[in-house]
Design a protein around this nucleic acid. Structure first.
Lengths: 165, 165
DNA sequence: GTGTCATAGTTGTAGCGACAACCAATACTC
DNA sequence: GAGTATTGGTTGTCGCTACAACTATGACAC
């Protein structure tokens, strides 16, 4: 057994990261519940809100949000029923469907955003020193190069560049 | 707006962490699929395998794995049907139920462990320098003090102490 | 232009998790 | 020791996601 397992320090880092990955989604989910949104719902609406014309093709939206197309299709259906999103066939490619954030949808994101941000701040950001914030960005970036080698989601997180030291 | 939102560096760290949290579970899940286990199944079996007598009370097991009791109850039912776990009433407290890992269950974890460890290594550990491993342990620990203030899962991750520098 | 393949999306089904409702046993109170 | 509250678990139902199957459009070969 040369490398199959992890040494003490690696294991210490891993179990803690695993615990964070286990706990964080629940915290985000419960907070957004007040706004009547799933964390994934919020993510979809947020991506649309930042897109040109508040519009994206379903495939592209699925890629950015790390979802399968069926999953997004179901979610879009429900969001459309609630009037937060509308779908219309893409003029250029009749196979494709565009999803656009409605005014009501935009209002919904803007309503939910502050609470969401506060949760992130309270549970993550405020726990760390400025130096650790920087380290975290670098560490997560390195991991993402492995988790997301094709850069499916990279368009999303590369919009926010830690750049300046 | 004094602090409701995040500054550039904080946002850069957050979106990357969020992407990791989004992507990592899927990777772990798909890998364990080969072994016929959910990541949560694996977690349950692993916790039992490290417990004295390979036995834990349901409540304690739920706490350590960050699950609600109903969830664990369903999972335990399925694992029991597969012969990987057995449940029996606790002699001291007749309300309580103990879950014990069977020999077949132990064999199952040991079968699944190397592949799981390899995935962790490939997607996380090997992406980081030794210094970053140490930083990650500290960062995750700090976040956990916020996410898990009551230390529900702390018994788990504190078993692996990054201690020595 | 016809046959084949790839791409874009929807729909149906099955499995898992959250929540609520419920039952059983213990602990507290007087 | 009777009554109430609390703790420990299970069961039932609903909503969401993965996967498979299917439809429709576009691309490419010849």
């Amino acid at each position: 057994m040369d490398s199959p397992w992890l040494d003490d320090k690696q294991l210490a880092a891993w179990v803690r990261l695993a615990a964070v990955v286990e706990l964080l989604p629940g915290v985000l989910e419960r907070q957004l519940r007040d706004a009547g949104l799933t964390h994934y719902d919020y993510f979809v609406l947020a991506m649309l809100s930042e897109a040109p014309e508040r519009t994206l093709r379903m495939t592209e939206l699925a890629r950015q949000t790390n979802a399968t197309l069926p999953r997004l299709s179901h979610v879009a259906q429900r969001l459309e029923d609630r009037g937060l999103v509308e779908r219309f066939p893409c003029p250029q490619d009749k196979r494709a469907t565009n999803a656009r954030l409605t005014d009501a949808g935009l209002a919904k994101v803007e309503e939910a955003a502050p609470g969401h941000a506060a949760t992130v701040r309270t549970h993550v950001i405020d726990a760390l020193s400025p130096q650790q914030i920087k380290q975290l960005a670098e560490i997560a970036e390195a991991i993402l190069r492995r988790l997301d080698p094709n850069g499916a989601m990279s368009g999303v997180y590369n919009r926010y560049d830690p750049a300046a030291d």
